[in-house]
């Protein structure tokens, strides 16, 4: 289901299907997260989550639209997990989610592992990007919008839990 990745070596442009993508290391991604967290007076976590939701809503919708036939729910969920894993964000299990919400799990987290490698342990969860990813993907799969679902990380590998847990609910 996932589109192919093509590299234009004359322009240093990478296309993932129709969309431009690039590779970035944990020093940048964690530095960006920390920079946003340190800005006073804004909801940095909310902005990260919202932006990821909007971007992955758009991107995953394009991916599903390019399939010749409508994609069954289980295949769409599998495709979303594959997308998350392919992009290097970790391993995510959406299988218990329904149109009403539920709980998603991650037994591997790029942000938790990267933050530990760069800054060491912290006492708050760190997977805000993943909350947005889940919200955006579910918005596509259940034919809603990018802001239909609220996702909160209630357990995190950063906090010594054995996996990250994301509680998903439908906004009123």
């Amino acid at each position: 289901m996932l589109p192919s990745i093509t590299f234009d070596s004359d322009k240093n442009i990478i296309k993932f299907g129709e969309s431009l993508v690039s590779f970035h290391c944990h020093h940048y991604n964690c530095g960006l997260l920390r920079a946003i967290e340190e800005i006073p007076g804004i909801d940095g976590h909310g902005i990260i989550t919202e932006t990821a939701a909007e971007e992955f809503f758009t991107a995953f919708k394009k991916i599903l639209t390019h399939e010749a036939k409508p994609v069954p729910l289980d295949k769409a969920i599998e495709g979303a997990s594959d997308l998350y894993r392919l992009m290097g964000f970790g391993r995510l299990d959406f299988s218990e989610l329904t149109a009403q919400g539920g709980i998603a799990y991650a037994d591997s987290s790029y942000y938790a592992m990267s933050w530990l490698a760069k800054y060491g342990r912290r006492d708050t969860a760190v997977c805000y990007f993943t909350c947005g990813f889940i919200a955006g993907i579910l918005g596509v799969i259940f034919d809603a919008g990018p802001h239909t679902y609220e996702v909160k990380e209630t357990r995190c590998l950063m906090l010594h839990h054995d996996r990250c847990e994301f509680v998903v609910s439908k906004r009123a």
């Binding site: 969309s19 690039s22 590779f23 970035h24 992009m87 290097g88 490698a117």
Partner: peptide
């Protein structure tokens, strides 16, 4: 020696 992700340019 680093952890890498591929992400959409538009996201950043």
């Amino acid at each position: 020696g680093v952890y890498v992700v591929m992400n959409y340019n538009e996201f950043y």
